[in-house]
Lab assay of single mutants.
Amino acid sequence: MIINNLKLIREKKKISQSELAALLEVSRQTINGIEKNKYNPSLQLALKIAYYLNTPLEDIFQWQ
């Protein structure tokens, strides 16, 4: 199972779901689904999230 800290990191950086979704060219619902662990992002999307949040990938997504 993958645990993610996306919501915590996104809120710490004061970025809304809508703003992050626009940067990543995905829907706000996609961001919401990832934050709620409804599904895991593709590797490409995970890397883009880490890039736009300027945060190491392993700080956002962790195996458990």
Rank of each mutant, 00 (worst) to 15 (best):
I34N: 00
K38T: 13
S27K: 09
E25M: 15
A46Q: 08
L43K: 14
L23K: 12
N37K: 12
S27P: 13
L24K: 00
R10P: 00
I15M: 10
E58F: 10
E11C: 07
Y51D: 14
P56D: 10
S27G: 09
N5Y: 05
S27D: 15
K7L: 09
T55D: 03
I9Q: 06
E35S: 01
N4F: 02
A22E: 14
M1C: 06
N5D: 04
L57K: 03
K12N: 12
I9R: 04
T55Y: 06
N4R: 02
V26H: 03
L23S: 13
A21I: 02
L47R: 14
K48Y: 04
S18A: 11
E35Q: 02
K7E: 12
K48D: 08
Y52K: 07
E11S: 09
A22F: 12
V26G: 02
D59Y: 08
L23I: 14
E19Y: 07
F61G: 01
L47M: 13
E11H: 08
I9T: 07
K14W: 06
F61P: 01
N5T: 04
Q62C: 08
E25V: 09
Y51S: 11
A21G: 07
R10S: 02
K14A: 13
Y39G: 06
Y51E: 10
T30A: 09
P56N: 09
N54D: 14
M1V: 09
L8H: 14
K7S: 09
N40A: 13
N54M: 08
I31W: 02
E11V: 11
N54T: 10
I2P: 08
L47N: 15
S18T: 13
D59M: 10
S16P: 07
L57S: 05
E35N: 01
M1P: 13
T55F: 05
K13R: 09
S42Q: 06
L23Q: 13
N4H: 03
Q62Y: 06
P41M: 05
E11A: 08
Q17E: 06
I49M: 07
L6T: 03
L57T: 04
E11T: 12
N5C: 05
E58G: 13
M1Y: 06
E25H: 15
K12A: 13
I49H: 00
N5Q: 06
E19V: 10
L24M: 09
I15N: 02
S42F: 03
S42V: 04
Q62I: 10
E19H: 10
S18M: 15
Y39A: 10
L45F: 09
Q44E: 15
Q17R: 08
A21E: 03
N54Y: 06
Q29N: 15
P41N: 01
S16I: 04
I34G: 00
G33D: 15
Q62K: 13
Q64V: 11
K48C: 09
I15H: 04
Q64A: 13
E11R: 10
K12F: 09
I49P: 00
V26M: 06
Y39F: 15
I3S: 10
A21Q: 03
L53N: 00
I9C: 06
K14Q: 12
E11N: 12
Q64N: 12
Q17P: 05
K7M: 10
Y39E: 12
K48Q: 12
E19A: 13
I2W: 08
E19Q: 12
I49V: 06
K48E: 07
L6N: 00
L47T: 15
L24E: 00
K36Y: 10
L24R: 01
L20H: 00
E58V: 08
S42H: 06
I49T: 04
A50R: 03
Q17N: 04
V26P: 00
G33F: 10
F61Q: 01
V26F: 02
I31C: 02
L43Y: 14
A50K: 03
S16Y: 04
L43P: 15
N40K: 12
R10C: 04
W63S: 05
P56M: 04
M1G: 05
L43N: 08
S27Y: 03
S27T: 09
K38Y: 11
Q44W: 09
S18C: 09
R28K: 15
R10T: 02
Q29W: 14
I2T: 13
P56T: 06
L47D: 08
K12M: 13
S27C: 05
K36W: 08
I9Y: 12
G33Q: 11
K14H: 14
N32G: 07
Q64H: 11
I3H: 09
L23N: 13
Y39Q: 11
K36V: 11
I15A: 03
Q29T: 09
N37R: 07
L20A: 02
I2H: 09
W63H: 05
T30Q: 11
Q29C: 10
N37S: 09
Q17W: 03
S27H: 08
I2Y: 12
V26I: 11
K7Q: 14
A50W: 02
V26C: 07
K48N: 09
R28C: 09
K48M: 10
K13E: 12
Y39W: 07
P41W: 03
A46N: 02
A46I: 04
I9D: 02
K14I: 05
W63C: 06
F61I: 03
I15S: 03
K38F: 12
S27R: 09
K12S: 12
L8P: 11
S16R: 08
M1N: 05
I34T: 02
N32M: 15
K7V: 08
I49D: 00
L47I: 14
S27M: 03
I3E: 08
E35T: 02
G33C: 11
Q17K: 10
K14T: 06
Q44L: 10
S18Q: 14
N4T: 03
L20K: 01
A46Y: 03
M1T: 06
A21K: 02
E11M: 09
A22V: 12
K14P: 04
I60E: 01
E58T: 09
D59W: 08
P56H: 06
I15K: 06
A46H: 02
N4E: 01
E19T: 12
K36E: 15
T30K: 09
L43M: 14
L24F: 03
N5M: 04
Q17T: 11
I49R: 00
I31P: 00
S18N: 10
N40R: 09
Q62M: 10
Q62F: 06
R10A: 02
Q17Y: 04
T30P: 01
A22I: 12
I34D: 00
N32S: 10
I60M: 07
W63K: 05
A46W: 05
N37T: 05
K36D: 15
Q29K: 13
L6Q: 03
K7F: 08
N5V: 03
Q29V: 14
A46E: 02
N40L: 07
L43G: 07
M1S: 06
G33A: 12
F61H: 01
E58Y: 10
N40D: 12
I49N: 00
P41I: 08
I3N: 06
S42E: 08
L43E: 10
N40P: 10
K7D: 04
Q62L: 07
Y51Q: 15
L6S: 03
L20F: 08
N4M: 02
K48P: 01
L45I: 07
S18H: 12
L53C: 04
P41G: 02
W63Q: 05
K36F: 11
P56R: 10
E58A: 11
G33P: 01
E35V: 02
R10H: 01
S18R: 11
Q29H: 15
P41V: 09
Q64T: 14
S42R: 07
L6R: 00
Y39I: 15
I49E: 00
Q44A: 13
A21C: 06
K48G: 07
A50T: 04
A22K: 11
V26T: 07
L43R: 09
E25R: 10
L23V: 14
N4D: 02
M1F: 07
Q64M: 07
A21L: 01
Q29S: 11
V26S: 04
I3Y: 09
S42K: 07
F61L: 03
L45T: 06
S16T: 13
E25W: 07
L45N: 03
P56A: 08
N54R: 11
K12E: 12
I9E: 06
K48A: 08
A46G: 09
K12Q: 15
L43A: 09
A21T: 03
I2M: 08
L8R: 14
E25N: 14
A50N: 01
N54F: 05
I9K: 04
F61D: 00
E19C: 07
S27F: 03
S16W: 03
L6V: 05
R10L: 05
L20R: 00
I31Y: 05
V26A: 04
R28W: 15
K14M: 11
T30E: 09
E25I: 07
W63I: 05
G33I: 07
E25Y: 10
K12V: 08
L45D: 04
E11K: 08
A22C: 08
I49F: 05
L6H: 02
K13L: 11
L53G: 00
Y51L: 12
Y51F: 14
T55G: 02
S18I: 15
I34W: 06
Q29E: 15
E25P: 07
K38W: 12
Y52W: 12
Y52I: 15
L53Q: 01
E25C: 10
Y39T: 10
L57W: 05
T30W: 08
